[in-house]
Design a protein around this nucleic acid. Structure first.
Length: 748
DNA sequence: TTAGGGTTAG
């Protein structure tokens, strides 16, 4: 064997270690006859660069045991390893050792320390070290500090630091530029970014791929796609990062087609395509609904083995779920070897997006059982699914899990909690969450406005709106849905008209179908059918089914046959299989004495094979749902329930309740009618609630259809006679019965 | 011969 000098041994160890061939590097290292600090540093640096901080650390301490003194090289390497792996503890240990060995004033080591502290989220430590440096003539030192501020989300300080660096006559370089541009991108500081761009053009750094991609990303994030494109076209560099940023930028601006075109162009040019490219492309595909293209991109991902990247697979799950291909989403999820919280979140949200709320809840349980700690995204998502199912107990448990996780309640979790509690009829809890939040944005306020409206508290809803405006938060499209909903459910005609007008006049928001539906409901039910019709005729878009339904319901109350017929005919066209317009129209005929016409509608309904959805009420107790239909005999405690109903009827009649026999079936005698009413699903549910819910607790009943008028009266009496808070959520709204009074004021 | 700071993504 040829004699090698120390120089050659070291070069060889470094070459193997730096290319990640650790077995060979270690073997050579062992064979090296006189190991110097350079030999050690070469091996340590290799481990630290290649994401193996544990081994880097091990050899660093072995080096000291071997009697070698640390150098700026070995210290720099282990600090980098700590920074990359986020190991603050390890970094602090090295900091202590650097002080002991008098390296704490070495430029290389201090830069490494600043970088390590900043990346370990201890920006004040980094700031302190930076302040302690007397002679700051070093690029890297400034660069580390600027990046530190930037990555810790302090854009202002990053920009100030950049300006101060320039003031002190230190030139920027290709390292400090991408950081400052990323800061501009994060806060959309396009004016500052453009100034930096001018400096770049003059300096010649525009040819650096790092600088170019940071510039493209800055413009793309600030929404200036043209400038971003010009930056790409200005040089011959075909950097994958620049293209990725461009694709993301197009996607964010809603130009998915353009994003996909760029991807095809990359593919056609045989450019490098990476995991970032695929995640951005999949995100674009999620909103295009182009399943064919989606599948071919999926094939490409499989062919190039990019499904091994968790973020790519997560994006695939999300994309398929949004394209309503939940089976494909499940397949991708199942094939993943290592799932993270985002993988689970994507599928949980995907289920909810496809209306599979029970599956979403089940998957969330599987996730916690697997020991995955839920983050705020999945918490928000699962709270919405719980709200959809009015699964209060589940929502409460999720709230508990989140509190236990020790995370502070973020705005998105807070908003979801308010909405969940309000939609489950617990408006007091919604209000409590609202008051505990430090930041209330328009979504937070709107959740509470809508919550009060749903729960029959129109006054509080309007008050909340006024408080929001007074606090300087501008209402949005959805705020007005809540507000007008509140007005319509409390018959506040004056207020409704005023808010509806202010929507366009003060805030420039064009009313949508939801706003019209509330207004027409409000005007119609308060008997102003002509005004309702006028508003309907003014609409610039075609009225949707909700609007016609509101009008038809109003026509039923006010017995307006002509308008009712118009509304019903429109509904027959728009929703041919919906039984509601048939039933309502038949009722209008019936009430106007046109029995033949009524019978015709019933016949029409039958001949078209449309069935009236059977009324059904349910009560959830200890995680179990108890469902009742009218005259149900299927519940295991039926005899107790029927005895309780007899008792209830006896007691509430004594208190003044008179059954409304007009709401009973028409073809039975008086006694039969009364009994029929007594065994409506709502009454069976409340009787069960009285038996099963301990005194003092609210009885929560859910009904798939609107509550029957007689049951509504009975609930009022029951709440008084039995001193119970009864919460009844029907298909339309919440009714809170307390001491003989309903929150809806009997207007519903 | 060994070393410090940089861009894109739910």
């Amino acid at each position: 064997m040829l004699e090698r000098d120390e120089y050659t041994w070291n070069t060889m160890v470094a070459a193997y270690a730096n290319s990640g061939r650790f077995d060979e590097a270690k073997e050579l290292f062992e064979e090296t006859p006189c190991k110097s600090s350079v030999t050690w540093s070469s091996l340590i640096s290799g481990y630290c660069r290649h994401g193996r901080p544990g081994e880097g650390f091990k050899f660093f301490w072995l080096m000291q045991l071997d009697g070698q003194k640390p150098t700026q090289f070995s210290l720099g390497s282990v600090l980098r390893a700590c920074a990359v792996s986020g190991s603050l503890q390890g970094g602090e240990q090295i900091h202590g050792y650097a002080m002991k060995t008098n390296f704490d004033h070495n430029d290389f080591v201090v830069t490494g320390l600043i970088d390590m502290y900043a990346k370990c989220r201890s920006i004040s430590e980094a700031e302190y070290l930076f302040a302690m440096v007397l002679e700051r003539s070093n690029h890297a030192l400034w660069s580390a500090m600027i990046t530190g501020y930037s990555q810790n989300g302090d854009a202002y300080k990053a920009m100030e630091c950049f300006k101060e660096m320039r003031k002190q006559g230190i030139e920027f370089d290709e390292y400090s530029l991408p950081s400052i541009l990323a800061t501009c991108a994060a806060v959309s500081a396009d004016a500052f970014g453009a100034q930096v761009h001018c400096c770049i053009t003059r300096s010649g750094y525009a040819v650096s791929a790092f600088v170019q991609s940071a510039l493209v990303d800055m413009y793309a994030k600030c929404g200036d796609l043209n400038s971003a494109k010009l930056v790409i076209e200005a040089t011959d560099i075909d950097g994958v990062v620049s293209w990725n940023s461009m694709i993301m930028g197009c996607m964010r601006q809603g130009c998915e087609e353009e994003a996909l075109y760029l991807f095809k162009k990359m593919h056609g040019r045989d450019m490098k395509i990476d995991d970032f490219t695929y995640t951005s492309v999949l995100k674009s595909l999620a909103s295009t609904m182009d399943l064919k293209l989606a599948k071919s991109v999926h094939c490409l991902i499989l062919k190039t083995r990019f499904e091994a990247y968790r973020l790519v697979s997560n994006a695939l799950i999300d994309m398929y779920a949004k394209q309503r291909e939940i089976t494909c989403a499940c397949e991708v999820f199942k094939c993943m070897l290592e799932k993270d919280v985002i993988s689970w979140t994507s599928l949980v949200t995907g289920y909810a997006h496809n209306g599979l709320f029970e599956e979403a809840l089940r998957l969330f349980c599987d996730m916690t059982a697997e020991g995955i700690c839920p983050d705020e995204m999945v918490i928000s998502s699962i709270l919405s699914a719980s709200a959809e199912l009015t699964a209060l107990e589940f929502g409460q448990q999720v709230h508990g899990i989140f509190v236990k996780s020790g995370h502070a309640i973020s705005t998105s979790v807070g908003n979801s909690l308010i909405s969940m509690y309000a939609r489950c009829g617990c408006i007091e809890d919604a209000d409590r969450v609202f008051n505990s939040m430090h930041v209330a944005g328009v979504i937070t306020w709107t959740a509470l406005i809508m919550g009060y409206a749903r729960n029959g508290k129109a006054k509080e809803s309007l008050e909340t709106y006024n408080r929001m405006v007074a606090s300087g938060v501008k209402p949005d499209y959805i705020s007005f849905i809540g507000l007008l909903f509140a007005c319509s459910h409390a018959c506040l005609v004056q207020e409704g008209r005023m808010y509806f007008e202010s929507m366009t006049k003060t805030y420039g928001i064009k009313p949508g179908p939801e706003h019209y539906a509330s207004m027409i409901d409000l005007l119609g039910r308060s008997g102003k059918l002509a005004e309702a019709e006028e508003l309907l005729n003014q609409m610039s878009v075609e009225p949707d089914p909700t609007i016609w339904k509101a009008l038809l319901a109003a026509c039923r109350v006010h017995k307006n046959l002509e308008l009712g017929e118009r509304a019903a005919r429109n509904l027959f066209k728009l929703e041919p299989m919906n039984s509601v317009p048939y039933v309502l129209l038949a009722n209008i005929y019936f009430a106007s004495g046109k029995l033949e016409e009524a019978a015709k509608i019933w016949g029409l309904m039958k001949s078209r094979g449309i069935n009236k959805e059977p009324g059904c009420s349910w009560v959830g107790i200890n995680g179990q749902v108890h469902t009742f239909v009218s005259e149900d005999r299927g519940h295991p405690r039926m005899s107790d329930i029927y005895s309780k109903i007899d008792e209830v009827m006896r007691l509430i009649k004594k208190a003044g309740y008179v059954p409304d026999l007009s709401l009973a079936l028409h073809d039975v005698d008086e006694e039969g009618k009364e009994l029929g009413l007594a065994y409506h699903s709502e009454k069976l549910a409340v009787a069960f609630g009285l038996l099963a819910v301990p005194q003092g607790g609210p009885i929560r009943i859910y009904k798939n259809l609107r509550v029957c008028g007689d049951c509504h009266i009975a609930m009022r009496y029951i709440s008084q006679v039995f001193s119970r808070h009864i919460v009844l959520r029907d298909s339309n709204r919440f009714h809170h019965f307390r001491e003989g009074v309903c929150s809806c004021g009997d207007y519903w």
